[in-house]
């Protein structure tokens, strides 16, 4: 063999014969799928957090707009107290709404 140059077919056969075995180790598939599931769960969590953050920011912005508009229209201390009570009520309602939303998102995960 050393004296004559190997032809392509013999070379190919020899390469195949010395090739390392190509079987994946036992449990590798399970580990891969566990990683995939973890990745999917994290992706859903990230989406849920983003959705919740967006919802809360929109809610806070809406409250601030209402608050500014109301404060500009107040012309007496009594009116001011009534307005503050009203705004406090709105904020509590928003917190409850956000809380419900958060619970719903967490339940979907």
């Amino acid at each position: 063999m050393n004296d004559e140059r190997m032809n392509d077919e013999r070379l190919a056969a020899l390469i195949r014969a010395v090739a390392p075995r190509k079987e994946a180790p036992v449990g590798l598939d399970t580990r891969i799928m566990a990683q995939i599931r973890l990745h999917e769960r994290r992706r859903r969590e990230r989406r849920a957090v983003m959705a919740m953050a967006g919802y809360c920011m929109a809610a806070v912005a809406a409250v601030l707009v209402v608050m500014c508009a109301c404060l500009q229209s107040v012309d007496s201390p009594e009116g001011m107290w009534r307005l503050l009570a009203l705004l406090a009520g709105i904020i509590v309602a928003m917190v409850i709404a956000c809380g419900d939303r958060a619970t719903e998102i967490l339940r979907r995960l």
Binding site: P20, E23, A24, P25, L28
Partner: peptide, 28 residues
């Protein structure tokens, strides 16, 4: 396809542990 991917990685790296890492990274 895990066996085929692992085979390619072993062929290139000649290292079973690194080949497993490459297989996992590939599928992810």
């Amino acid at each position: 396809y895990s066996g085929k991917v692992y085979g390619l990685a072993v062929g290139m790296l000649h290292d079973a542990e690194r080949a497993e890492d490459v297989t996992q990274e590939t599928f992810l």
